[in-house]
Design a protein around this nucleic acid. Structure first.
Length: 272
DNA sequence: GAAGGCCTGGAA
DNA sequence: TTCCAGGCCTTC
């Protein structure tokens, strides 16, 4: 379940690895993961140089010459792996990028196939809605701006944090972890929180994300680094995946409740 | 604003 | 064998 820290980690590794490289060939073995025509991708990108790699929300962008951008979303189980292709048909491999003069290639795998890949040019209109409507990055807004975005909402804070149109990058893990660190119950409705609490939440989100990035993200099921390594932030989770275990703060048992179709983990004592 | 659907591997 | 995990979109 790659969220902002996992994507950020991969982006840094990709930038290091393929910036300046020329794409010689694209091998697409499952067209259904593409939301742009296969021919457009293969024809327009072949022979183009990667300028840099960036992140927007949970999306990865390979920026090529001529304003061409190849976007990846990893969904839940998407992986980008830099490797020499050994097994001819690696399981669930859908796409491979081959670069001039490189023995290793960039593979996109995704067992559950919630991920997607598409091509955009410099025109905003060439981006899907999911990107165009993306909210601001957590690190790029102030606590006050955060409070203005969320403060008048009447829904549950946890559900709202998952809404990428309000703010981009959080998923189930970091929403739960940030709420715990801010001492806010996931069921709370933001219009009933004061500005101080909202600003504290924004600070918790930024701190949690930065700490997770420092630890290479959380590797729970499928997430791995470009070289196959794992993140270690899961060792520092306070609530996510810890149902029934004791809260590190007060010893109360961590609870899990369904909310907005997914589970929320929290400490009933520390999060009021 | 809730619920269903996509999709598969792993646990119960 | 059934259920569950969840990113995000569509439908009610």
């Amino acid at each position: 379940m790659p969220e902002l820290p996992e994507v950020e980690t991969l982006v840094a590794q990709l930038r290091e690895k393929i910036s300046g490289c020329v794409l010689s060939r694209i091998v697409i073995t499952r067209e259904s993961i593409l939301s742009s025509p296969k021919e457009a991708i293969t024809k327009k990108l072949s022979g183009k140089r990667v300028q840099t790699v960036k992140r927007r929300g949970k999306f990865i962008r390979l920026e090529f010459e001529k304003d061409l951008t190849l976007w990846f979303h990893l969904g839940m189980t998407g992986q980008l792996i830099w490797t020499e292709e050994r097994e001819k048909k690696a399981l669930h491999q859908h796409l491979a990028l081959v670069f001039e003069g490189k023995k290793d290639r960039l593979l996109f795998r995704d067992s559950r196939r919630f991920g997607e890949v598409f091509l955009a040019n410099g025109n905003i209109a060439s981006l899907p809605q999911g990107v165009r409507l993306l909210g601001p990055e957590p690190f790029e807004i102030s606590g006050n701006e955060f409070a203005s975005i969320f403060g008048s909402r009447k829904g549950r804070i946890k559900s709202l944090l998952l809404n990428q149109r309000l703010m981009a990058g959080l998923g189930n893990i970091y929403a739960d972890e940030s709420l715990y660190r801010a001492g806010i119950n996931p069921k709370k409705r933001p219009h009933r929180l004061n500005r101080t609490a909202l600003m504290r939440l924004h600070e918790s989100i930024c701190l949690t994300l930065k700490e997770a990035i420092r630890h290479g993200g959380s590797s729970i099921d499928d997430y791995m680094h470009l070289d196959g390594g794992r993140g270690v932030f899961q060792k520092f989770h306070q609530v996510y995946g810890r149902e029934g275990e004791n809260c590190n703060g007060c010893g109360t048992k961590i609870r899990r409740v369904p909310l907005a179709g997914r589970s929320s983990h929290f400490c009933p004592q520390c999060q009021k």
